[in-house]
Nucleic acid binder design. Structure first.
Length: 975
RNA sequence: GCCCAGGUGGCGGAAUUGGUAGACGCAGCAGACUCAAAAUCUGCCGUUCGCAAGAUCGUGCUGGUUCGAUUCCAGUCCUGGGCACCA
């Protein structure tokens, strides 16, 4: 009987489905364990082998925990709102709901084929009205809440109203408003005035923010749709535009998001990323008078101790203030510079090495020295951080220093010898000079003195700042959750209908007027004065882990009993690309729901494991192209021919600079003198090699399958002429060719457009899901990123077949028996139990797979076909390769599914050793091995060692200085 | 630019706490079985020198700490991820 994985896998998948073996209850006497995968976006391209890496890891762990006696929740669903579906709708006119459903169906087929233990009855989809009903509802809770500074938690907006009614604006629970009011005044405000004030405190609020606006496309673009200041599609100009936007006041939670990191098990790298993103800093906000103007320049600095070293100011080019203060002489230059900056993204601005800037012609006054300080604008200062203006201290800050040098601004030294005039010194240890009342103080002590003086003088305040900004929460798009908000006379009101407020049908997905979303095109929607923005992708994904606990509930987002039972996610597996977006948002939402007493915990994820990315390994062919400039010359002579039979050259012509070589041309010439390209090549010797991605699925390693290549893309290259590595040429009409064509290789992101994706289904068909699962794990540590290479999968498949042969022989049939296992055989088993358990616990799945291989190799060598041993091994293997394990488990005559078996218990007594083969080194270099009893004393070991021939040889008669003996590890003789 | 991660054979990787570098697998080479092929099995498989025994160098690079460093420290180069509207 042979290992027929196709039959085995489909049979067991069907049986498990029929028996509902993965159904999970919200009540159990067993302890609970919640394993979560990051929410997939169901893209049209389907799953590629990179996606399931984390899913397989979590599936293994879920099954392992189940065997260990836990009630395990391991759900799956879809983050099904998003830009790609809408983009596709724009191009094809198909409704996103339709394409999304199609994509989800494909994903589910693919996932099921791999044999995951999801309870599909708990599936959620964010674009399903029964789901986004609750996303909208939670949004309304955010809208109806504010952050109480006193209690440090979210509370209902009604509480704030009560406070205003009794105490006016001077309340301890929130920061003061821009314009103070009394309790009496509050009561006299009209509705709109009150709402405007409250909008400053709501956790979900409306404000104004900049977006990437593309006039030509009439739409707002995502950052990744903008490249070098123009749109990716069409290359149209993109500028910043201010729009009314919804925001989440996540900044209020900055401190708690930081503090919460102490209570979760995330990697230090992940915690660092979040900490840096939040970017807490403390310093001061200082108002500088501006010469000849009433307006003040407010700067934020973390180093108020350096205030006497300020040589210039830098203001973000976006700041309105600039228009007021710019001098007539500088006006044109300033406007031109602002126009330049408008075309640049934040990333470009921060990454720019070239120093740019423009003097405004205005001067600020140093409040302590009275010095006049020139005010500049430059793109390296961003408007969103701090006050959008900095005081520049070139002797202490590298960027300020370079700026001063570039524009020849004189530099003041306030740290004496600590500053060498060649580069800035950002120390806090120097003793201040040229610094008025701060002279003689060490800088780090001077910070506090300076802040106190600034506060006393009434020109500034101590200020804690966060780099993190409030999260923009609206999109000018169609395919997202509508806001249950109406606008009455410019005031945002909660929509009065019953949730969900469903997405209306639209005829076109084109943007609405004035940079509004497509919803603005619908008369009925606009008539009802409904909000035309929709929510962003992270709305639905910020709370989905809660919905899985109680996915069908129509009364509440998640029953309290269910969330109390399942509590936090015990294990969350996903990529670092979500480090600062999704993870921070869902942590914030959890904290708000906790504050409002709707759930009983304030961190969503107890433990986070970061899965690495599987990169694509792309393959290239190199097309010989006539260069652009010469095209005219070839008109009529070549070009028509060119398109039909392009020439491709093998890798070596690209890497070994065979470009333009006589050799390449002579190859063609010698073989095919009538070749029509030849004349032009000889004549002009001017061509390029362009890299063209080819589908990795018809490249074996690096060798191109030329027949497949000719059939590719409906025969686009069927007439191609290929010059191989061995300098043989393949023509379309000579199918028998000795041409060996080698492709170029590069590691890149796995993506359909790069033709480097591999479909897991194909591999499951060819080798089986068990092989696929184990191979994904065998590739390397889950946390590591690595390029995909299908080649090694054979090895894992061979391993499973070898396992199969421990039970069945192709000719003899059943070979397993019920004989008693020997000590040696039990030792093999228990060493495996120990290692598999350890490796699984620490998510080291790749070494676990190796361990299985070693175990099966050893059992095969020992000809051990004993049920007593094999049965235990199968249980260990179930989480990794569930189908074959179940099949063999049944063959052994077991009742019931192996899914419910009990995990083997490791018996240390079986592994006790009495001696050890020690490596013996002399001066740290291993020279020999020696087997010694484990109960020897240091002295006994030393004596034995010195007797040894090899050791004596290396001692060369000298006496050893020291002998290091680490029991059970090694011995080192120092001479 | 800033933040984070990673550089080990031809390739993916192992070495869990500073203790035999290269487990396990792929590819390759040689052999057995076979009419042949597939499958399976056996052996070899970092570099240089050597018939061999053995020696030499070797974990991106340059230094340091240590009896001993892939592992710790400092610096440096390269690659990948993120940088707020892809999800």
């Amino acid at each position: 009987m042979e290992y027929n994985f196709r039959a085995i896998e489909s049979e067991w998948q069907q049986k498990w489905k029929d028996d509902k073996v993965y159904k999970v209850d919200n009540t159990s006497t067993k302890p609970k364990y919640y394993v979560l995968d990051m929410f997939p976006y169901p893209s049209g391209a389907g799953l590629h082998v990179g996606h399931p890496l984390g899913y397989i890891a979590s599936d293994i762990f879920s099954r392992y925990k189940r065997l260990k006696g836990f009630n395990v929740l391991h759900p799956m669903g879809f983050d099904s709102f998003g830009l790609p579906a809408e983009q596709y709708a724009l191009e094809t006119g198909q409704h996103p709901a339709v394409t999304t459903q199609k994509n989800i169906a494909t994903f589910k087929l693919q996932l099921d084929k791999i044999g995951f233990c999801y309870d599909w009855e708990r599936e959620v989809q964010t674009s399903d009205p029964s789901y986004y009903k609750w996303t909208q509802w939670i949004f309304l809770q955010l809208f109806d809440s504010f952050y109480n500074r006193q209690t440090q938690k979210a509370e209902r907006i009604a509480e704030l109203v009560k406070a205003f009614e009794t105490q006016g604006s001077n309340v301890p629970v929130v920061d003061a408003t821009a314009t103070p009011f009394t309790a009496a005044a509050w009561k006299n405000f009209d509705h709109a005035a009150k709402q405007n004030i409250l909008m400053n405190y709501r956790l979900a609020y409306c404000g104004y923010g900049e977006v990437n606006w593309c006039e030509a496309l009439g739409t707002v673009l995502a950052n990744d749709e903008v490249i070098n200041g123009v749109s990716e599609r069409g290359g149209h100009l993109v500028v910043k535009k201010k729009l009314r936007q919804w925001y989440l006041r996540i900044t209020q939670y900055a401190d708690r998001l930081l503090e919460g990191l102490n209570h979760v098990d995330f990697s230090d790298a992940m915690k660092d990323m979040q900490t840096n993103w939040i970017g807490k800093s403390s310093g001061a906000e200082i108002d500088f008078a501006i010469k000849g103007h009433d307006a003040k320049l407010r700067v934020y600095t973390t180093r108020p101790d350096t205030i006497f070293g300020v040589d210039f100011m830098v203001v973000a080019p976006e700041l309105e203030l600039i228009n007021t203060i710019k001098s007539p002489e500088q006006s044109t230059a300033v406007d031109e510079y602002i126009a330049y900056v408008k075309s640049r993204s934040d990333v470009e601005r921060m990454a720019e090495k070239k120093i740019t800037g423009c003097f405004t012609g205005a001067y600020a006054i140093n409040p302590f020295s009275g010095r006049e300080i020139p005010i500049w604008i430059s793109e390296y200062v961003l408007s969103g951080y701090g006050t959008g203006a900095i005081m520049a201290v070139p002797c202490g800050d590298e960027r300020d220093f370079k700026f001063a040098q570039h524009f020849s601004i004189p530099i003041t030294n306030i740290i004496g010898e600590q500053y060498n005039g060649q580069e800035a010194n950002p120390t806090k240890e120097a003793i201040l000079e040229n610094s008025g009342f701060l002279n003689g103080l060490v800088m780090k002590d001077a910070i506090n003195v300076a802040v106190e003086k600034i506060e006393a003088a009434g020109i500034g305040i101590r200020k804690v700042n966060y780099k993190m900004r409030d999260a923009a929460f609206s999109r000018q798009r169609y395919w997202g959750e509508p806001f249950p908000i109406t606008w009455k006379n410019g005031v945002a009101e909660v929509w009065e209908g019953e949730l969900p407020l469903t997405l209306p049908h639209v005829d076109t997905y084109s943007p609405g007027p004035d940079a509004q979303g497509p919803l603005a095109n619908i008369p009925e929607w606009v008539e009802k004065e409904l909000e035309t923005n929709t929510m962003p992708g992270y709305a639905g994904s910020s709370w989905y882990f809660l919905r899985y606990m109680d996915p069908k509930n129509n009364e509440t987002f998640c029953d309290r009993k269910a969330s109390d039972y399942w509590n936090q996610v015990d294990l969350y597996i996903g990529g670092t690309e979500h480090a600062v977006g999704h993870l921070l948002y869902s942590r914030m939402w959890t904290k708000v729901l906790y504050d409002l007493d709707m759930i009983g915990f304030d961190e969503p994820y107890r433990k986070l494991v970061n899965q690495g990315m599987i990169q694509g390994s792309s393959r290239f062919v190199y097309r010989l192209d006539v260069t652009e400039g010469l095209k005219d010359i070839f008109e009529g002579e070549i070009l028509s021919n060119d398109d039909q039979s392009p020439i491709f050259v093998s890798n070596k012509f690209y890497t070994e600079s065979y470009k333009l070589s006589d050799k390449l041309i002579s190859i063609i010439e010698n073989k095919y003198s009538s070749f029509s390209h030849l004349q032009s090549l000889k004549k002009y010797r001017s061509y390029n090699l362009s890299e063209i991605h080819v589908d990795v699925n018809f490249v074996d390693g690096v060798e191109l399958n030329i027949d497949e290549f000719r059939k590719w893309k409906n025969g686009e290259y069927k007439n191609a002429i290929l010059i191989g590595e061995n300098e043989e040429v393949s023509f379309p009409d000579n199918p028998v060719s000795k041409c060996i064509f080698i492709c170029g290789v590069e590691t890149e992101k796995m993506s359909k457009s790069k033709y480097n994706t591999v479909n897991p289904n194909d591999l499951c068909d060819k080798y089986g899901a068990d092989t696929f699962r184990m191979y994904e794990m065998f590739l390397g540590p889950v946390e590591a990123s690595k390029p995909w290479d299908t080649k090694g999968i054979e090895g894992v498949h061979r391993f499973l077949r070898k396992l199969w042969r421990l039970f069945n022989d192709e000719l003899k049939g059943k070979v397993w028996n019920t004989e008693k296992a020997t000590d040696a055989e039990l030792k093999i088993l228990h060493r495996t139990i120990k290692k598999i358990e350890e490796d699984t616990e620490r998510f080291s799945f790749n070494t676990a797979v190796s361990t299985f291989m070693i175990c099966v190799n050893e059992l095969a060598d020992a000809k051990c076909y004993k049920k007593e041993v094999l049965e235990q091994l199968l249980i260990l293997l179930t989480p990794y390769a569930p189908h074959i394990s179940e099949e063999l488990w049944q063959q052994l005559g077991n009742e019931g599914s192996i899914l419910n078996a009990t995990y083997p218990v490791f018996n240390p007594a079986l592994l006790v050793e009495s001696s050890k083969e020690y490596p013996v080194s002399v001066n740290g270099k291993v020279r020999t091995n020696l087997s010694l009893s484990l109960d020897l004393t240091q002295q006994q070991v030393e004596e034995t060692i010195l007797q040894n021939e090899v050791v004596q040889k290396w001692l060369e008669g000298k006496a050893p200085k020291r002998i290091i003996y680490v029991k059970n590890k090694m011995i080192n003789v120092v001479v």
